[in-house]
Amino acid sequence: MDQYIDIKVRVWRQAGPKAQGHFETYELKHVFQGASFLEMIDILNEQLVAEHKDPVTYDHDCREGICGMCSMYVNGHPHGPDSAITTCQLHMRKFKDGETITVEPWRSRAFPVIKDLMVDRGAYDKIMQAGGFVSVNTGGVPDANAIPIPKPVADEAMDAASCIGCGACAAACKNGSAMLFVSAKVSQLALLPQGKVEAAARAKAMVAKMDELGFGNCTNTGACAAECPKSVSLANIARLNREFLCAKFQD
């Protein structure tokens, strides 16, 4: 059963992109374990506002694990210690009375801190703009059932497509590589007949953009998939490598 607990929250505070950051520790009493992690941060912020202090800035929106906005490093793990969930789906029942919880922003060269726990993940959008699409315009497309797609293939594409673009993969990676994110999109589209036509060119364009934006190289440590809230599989990286080789071969 959920109880009330007293905790300490050790939060990264950083006034702006160029400012020097530091940890600040706050005490929170009587927090219900049924509250979500972000609701706990809300309670902390209410407390800070009441004391006329600056509340902790952090990204969040849907609060149900789908928008990919929330992005906290909790006790050394992106999205916290629980598996296959986002920070907003984490609940206080995962923490014990008296515990000190450390909260940091994503730390990755390609994701500069904007303020406190909020980072700039614009680099992921740029990678998508480089090739994460099928080149079709609105209108003039064939009937949706014109090309049957085997269910296992459609299901595999769906699994790859479930990536929420949160950035935990790059944040978890010691090299700061975005391979899991990029490979998920490349895989989804390469699996489907609609996206297959451009598969090799897409892989090349997206990887080139990723390198250009300062993401590191993939050395197959697997940290990304272990921390990914949507359990996006490492098999996607293998598929990306195949598409990428294919593209090189064509050159």
Binding site: V141, A157, L192, Q194
Partner: peptide
């Protein structure tokens, strides 16, 4: 539906 399938939206299939 036609448009979304053409974009690579992975709808559920039989």
């Amino acid at each position: 539906i036609d448009q979304c399938v053409a974009q690579g939206v992975p709808f559920a299939r039989e």
